[in-house]
């Protein structure tokens, strides 16, 4: 071979620039459309911030942590502490109830059902996801609430000595417990479809190997499936959590919004939800109070954005094949 000179070879620029006018218009409109989503998110943030700034300014830190809402125009006090905590409490209950159902459903579809049953169950998950929240609210208020109140009462009778199951009012309707159930119904399909996706992408050889080695379903699940797909499932759960935090109409019908923090008495008929509160107060709010509701919107936006970003990051990381 001839002597190899380490002299760097010139690398040419390979910018594949569109040559024709139609191409340039094509790429430009696609770019423009895509970047409009950046504009959209910024606009949402800017306008909500702008309209809500007076409320943040007049209420200060207590807007988040205080627990009074007085719409007397002379002395407007707006604090969303109980609503914010209520959102977290209801969402947590929803997630706790939804996770076993969703993971079981996904496990059933991927690892147990034959193709036909699996397909039916998949369609079911999609259908559940397509149910509008106002319809679930109607169902939750008129059909489910009485039933769940019965469960709540029974839990109270059996386990009322445990503080979280205490109930001093004797009224079991419109409690965080019931709202949590309704939210669970909403987020089961989200968690289930992410989990199903992740389960179905698992390395089949790994699972066959595990079963061939004589491991049962349970140990295969615990030692092979969970460790490899755990991250993705957590991401799916967070996506569900984001949806739960933003749920508005359904919770509005089945939860009693009270401006007094209910820390953990989940059977008590008082709770909170930022999104539902916005809806509840919006109709009768004066201009200054609307600023306060906008501020609640900002808080909600930031919280859900944060949860969603983490969730999609985790899901994306757990699915390296989707790039």
């Amino acid at each position: 071979m001839a002597e190899t000179q380490p002299a760097p070879i010139e690398r040419r620029s390979l910018r594949a620039k569109p040559f024709s006018k139609a191409d340039r218009a094509f790429f430009k409109s696609a770019t423009w459309a895509a970047n409009s989503s950046i504009v959209l998110v910024s606009l949402i943030f800017i306008f909500l911030m702008w309209r809500s700034w007076p409320a943040f300014e007049s209420q200060g830190v207590d807007y988040i942590f205080g627990s009074t809402w007085d719409n007397n125009p002379e002395n407007l006090v707006m604090q969303i502490g109980p609503m914010l905590w209520g959102s977290i409490l209801v969402s947590t209950i929803g997630v706790v109830l939804a996770v076993p159902m969703a993971i079981s459903l996904a496990y059933f579809i991927v690892f147990m059902a034959n193709d036909r049953f699996g397909k039916i169950a998949t369609v079911m998950v999609d259908l559940l996801a397509a149910l509008p929240s106002v319809v679930l609210g109607l169902w939750g208020l008129l059909i489910f609430s009485p039933v769940a109140a019965g469960w709540a009462e029974m839990i109270y009778q059996g386990l009322g000595f445990i503080p979280i199951f205490d109930n001093s009012s004797g009224n079991f309707l419109r409690s965080p417990f019931i709202a949590g159930w309704v939210v669970a119904v909403m987020i089961v399909p989200i968690i289930a479809s992410v989990t199903r996706e992740i389960f179905s992408q698992l390395d089949r050889d790994l699972i066959s190997a595990s079963l061939a080695l004589g491991a049962g379903r349970w140990s295969t699940f615990r030692r092979v499936i969970l460790p490899t797909s755990g991250g993705g499932i957590v991401g799916g759960v967070l996506l569900g959590l984001g949806r739960a935090l933003g749920e508005t109409v359904a919770i509005f019908f089945v939860l009693n919004l009270v401006f007094e923090v209910n820390w953990f008495n989940i059977l008590e008929d008082q709770g909170g939800s930022v999104a539902s509160m916005i809806l509840a107060k919006f109709g009768e709010a004066g201009q200054d109070e609307v600023a306060g509701l906008m501020a609640a919107g900002v808080v909600l936006f930031v919280v859900t954005l944060f949860v969603n970003m983490i969730a999609s990051f985790i899901v994306a990381k757990a699915q390296p094949w989707r790039k």
């Binding site: 070879i9 010139e10 690398r11 040419r12 390979l14 594949a16 040559f19 024709s20």
Partner: peptide, 29 residues
């Protein structure tokens, strides 16, 4: 077709009837 791969880099020339097809003035189409 090479340049359609995002990370592709190239050095040298491809001459078609004496014209370098990678000249900026040449339309890949």
């Amino acid at each position: 077709m090479h340049e359609l791969i995002p990370s592709a880099g190239l050095g040298g020339k491809v001459l078609l009837d004496g014209v370098d097809i990678y000249e900026p003035s040449v339309d890949p189409v």
